[in-house]
């Protein structure tokens, strides 16, 4: 259809005609430059994934405290370490996308010693506990009584993430592109975390549980990674807020 009457005719297995050679050389060089330029443009303008990370530089941290099953396991620290202060409430996970739940089922309210690697992202942190007895064991002594404070019902806006990737197991560990990974973490009972757009009682991150204090309901998985507004009860466990999310009240926020 193009008017090729006077244009050089290319046959693949013959030498390119003179009139076409310089054009093809230009196309070839242009293609390589285009690809390098696009690689540079896209690669150099990627968004900041945040400052979350495994803190291998802290070294192994060992703390003692009271195990609480919210139902996600957290430790109310009574004897801290260099990077985990006394009085802190520390979320726990096992390696990979696996929960610690099967190992701590009988330890609710008990004094325990936990050891592992810290992940942190600003105010948010979590410990990836070592395997076996080295990771978690009963501690000597009686567990002190731990209070929790009901802060009432709240409607908050933000994003549900899996707490481990958010804390730095993955960079980036948030957003729609990470949703399937976050769901997979939640299937493994990794603690979900709500990232609120406005601080709630001074905290931007809230551990999320189901409406009756159960694990995060499967019916709410479709809400993960989306920007939503949702209601629920907020309970303070030490310096950690636990959000009893009610999926029926969730609304997508544009």
């Amino acid at each position: 259809m193009a008017d090729n009457k006077d244009k050089p005719f290319f046959v693949g297995y013959l030498t390119a005609p003179d009139g076409l050679r310089s054009f093809l050389i230009g196309i070839g060089i242009g293609l390589i430059l285009l690809m390098a330029g696009v690689g540079l443009g896209i690669g150099a303008t990627q968004d900041d994934p945040g400052n979350g990370a495994f803190r291998g530089d802290y070294g192994r941290q060992t703390v003692t405290g009271v195990m609480e099953l919210t139902p996600y396991p957290v430790v109310r620290v009574t004897q801290g370490s260099e990077h985990v202060p006394e009085g802190h409430t520390l979320m726990l996970s096992a390696g990979g996308k696996q929960s610690l739940m099967s190992r701590v089922r009988d330890l609710d309210g008990q004094l325990v010693t936990v050891s592992g690697t810290i992940l942190d992202r600003g105010e948010l942190d979590m410990m990836q506990v070592r395997g076996g007895q080295n990771g978690i064991s009963r501690a000597e002594g009686d567990a002190p009584e731990m209070d929790s404070e009901d802060l009432g019902r709240w409607r908050i806006a933000g994003e549900i993430c899996d707490g481990k990737c958010l804390a730095g197991a993955m960079r980036p560990g948030t957003g729609i592109a990470h949703k399937a990974c976050a769901n997979l973490c939640l299937i493994g009972d990794i603690p979900p975390v709500f990232v609120s757009t406005q601080p709630v009682e001074g905290s931007e991150f809230l551990l999320v549980v189901g409406p009756d204090g159960t694990i995060f309901p499967k019916s709410a998985y479709d809400l993960v990674a989306a920007y939503i507004s949702v209601e629920g009860k907020v309970v303070r466990h030490g310096d950690l807020l636990v959000f009893h999310l009610e999926p029926d009240t969730a609304e997508l926020v544009q």
Binding site: I32, L33, G39, L40, I42, G43, D48, P49, R171
Partner: peptide, 24 residues
């Protein structure tokens, strides 16, 4: 072209990005 794209993206741009911690 493919090598140029991948080399620039994988090896050059991490040096340009000024993130506090790198993308995995």
């Amino acid at each position: 072209g493919v090598a140029a794209f991948l080399w620039v993206f994988i090896h050059v741009t991490p040096e340009i990005l000024s993130h506090e911690r790198p993308i995995n």
